[in-house]
Amino acid sequence: MKESCDNFAELLVDYADGCLPAEQSARVTDHLTECDHCRTLLESLQKSLELAQVIWQDNLSKTPETIRIPAPARTTQRSWLRYVAAAVLIVSAILIATNMLEKPAKHQPTFAEIEQKITDAGNAAKLLAAADFLGGYANAETIAKQQYRRIVETYPNTPAADKAKTQIE
C-alpha cells in the first residue's frame, strides 16, 4: 500500500494542477476515494500553494511599481566614475610603491606632479570607458577608434593610453 502511495505522490502534483491526462487522472481519482493519506496530501498541496501565493503577493505589494532606469548617459557617467576611482587608486599605489622602493630617488615627484598624473590618469580613464562603451555599439566603432587615438595622443603616459593602443593596433 505504502509503495503505491509513493507513486501517487508524484502524480498528485499534476492532478492538483489539473494537468494529468484523462486516463491517469481517473486512476488518481479512484485511488483518492479509498486513500485518506493521499487525500490529505492533495489538500496540503493545494493549501501550501495558496499560502505561497499569499506570501508572494504580499511581497510584491511592497515593491515599487516602476524603477528608475538609468539613462544611458548616467550609466556611462557611473562607469567613468568607477574607472576614475580605480585609476586614482592604481596611480597612487604605483607612486607610493616607487617612493618606498627607491628611497634615495633621483627625482621625488612633487605633490603637484602627483596630482597632475592622477588627473591625467582619471581623464584618460573616463575617455577610455566612454570609448569602450561606444565600441559595444555596431556602427559606432569609428567614433570609438577616434576616441582611443585621442587618449593615446593627449594622455600618452597613462594606463588608459596603453589599453587604448591595443584597441587601435
Binding site: 505522490a9 502534483v13 496530501l41 496540503s44 498541496l45 501550501s48 500553494l49
Partner: peptide, 14 residues
C-alpha cells in the same frame, strides 16, 4: 523540480 518543490512545501505543512 516543480514536483519536488510542491511536495516539500505540502509535506512540511502537513
Amino acid at each position: 523540480r516543480l514536483r519536488d518543490a510542491r511536495l516539500i512545501l505540502a509535506k512540511r505543512l502537513q
